[in-house]
């Protein structure tokens, strides 16, 4: 894999939760995180459970508000700080630049799996039929039986839902991809399929930051790792 230009970076990123229901108790998760991820690179976040890996990933997506520091993504040759950008810009970046595969799928009930996967393409202006066809290609690639495509995923198994989620994250090919345990509920066969898809995205120049509990998966996809515990803020 060839490493390209930097796509995502943080500067002195810190996250502290202030729990107003608990008398203003503060929980410092991490501070001083400086990272840079290049095209074609996969940075694995390491650290024990509860050390803040997911919190960091969520800060990179703007799902959690950074307490301090910057999260910058490169778009059309410019760095944009997501922590200072207005909501509309962050939504734009989420459509065009930065994708996120969360651990759990949260979608409107009653919507077919195929339409859930097609949505990121439709938001980019791809015609409905074309978007559905490409969504179907991804679901087929990830081994989701075709008889499930027109059903809403609420009744699917954990592993099936996860593959819908992965397909949704990869379908539009965002230049930056955040993966939170993308193989956690998969059997060995489907784990290989998802690993192959991640490796293909890397080969195509995607910059990836992920959390991978499974050692084999991490070895197969990660080019580097970052131990979040290094940045633990002393409470």
């Amino acid at each position: 894999m060839t490493i390209g230009q930097p796509m995502l970076r943080t500067r002195q990123l810190a996250k502290t939760f202030t729990l107003h229901q608990q008398g203003g108790l503060t929980l410092r998760v991490f501070s001083g995180v400086d990272l840079a991820v290049h095209a074609g690179e996969c940075l694995a976040l390491a650290g024990r459970s509860g050390s803040g890996k997911s919190s960091l990933l969520r800060c990179l997506y703007g799902n959690y508000a950074a307490t301090h520091g910057a999260v910058e993504v490169r778009h059309e040759g410019q760095w944009i700080d997501m922590t200072r950008a207005d909501d509309r810009t962050v939504l734009y970046l989420r459509r065009r630049v930065i994708g996120h595969v969360s651990q759990f799928l949260r979608v409107v009930p009653r919507v077919a799996a195929l339409d859930i996967v097609a949505e990121p393409l439709r938001l980019l202006g791809v015609a409905s039929e074309d978007a559905r066809r490409r969504a179907g290609d991804w679901l087929a690639r990830l081994n989701l039986p075709a008889r499930l495509w027109t059903l809403p995923p609420a009744t699917f198994s954990g592993g099936e839902q996860q593959r819908v989620n992965v397909a949704r994250g990869l379908v539009a090919g965002p230049p930056v991809l955040l993966l939170d345990e993308p193989t956690a509920s998969l059997d060995a066969g489907n784990r290989v399929v998802v690993v192959d898809a991640i490796r293909a995205a890397l080969a195509a120049g995607t910059a990836i930051v992920g959390i991978f509990h499974d050692n084999d998966v991490r070895r197969a996809v990660a080019t580097r790792s970052l131990d979040i515990e290094t940045f633990a803020a002393s409470a």
């Binding site: 969520r58 799902n63 508000a65 962050v90 939504l91």
Partner: peptide
């Protein structure tokens, strides 16, 4: 953003 307001 709705997800930020509800999750953090």
């Amino acid at each position: 953003l709705t997800d930020r307001v509800l999750d953090d």
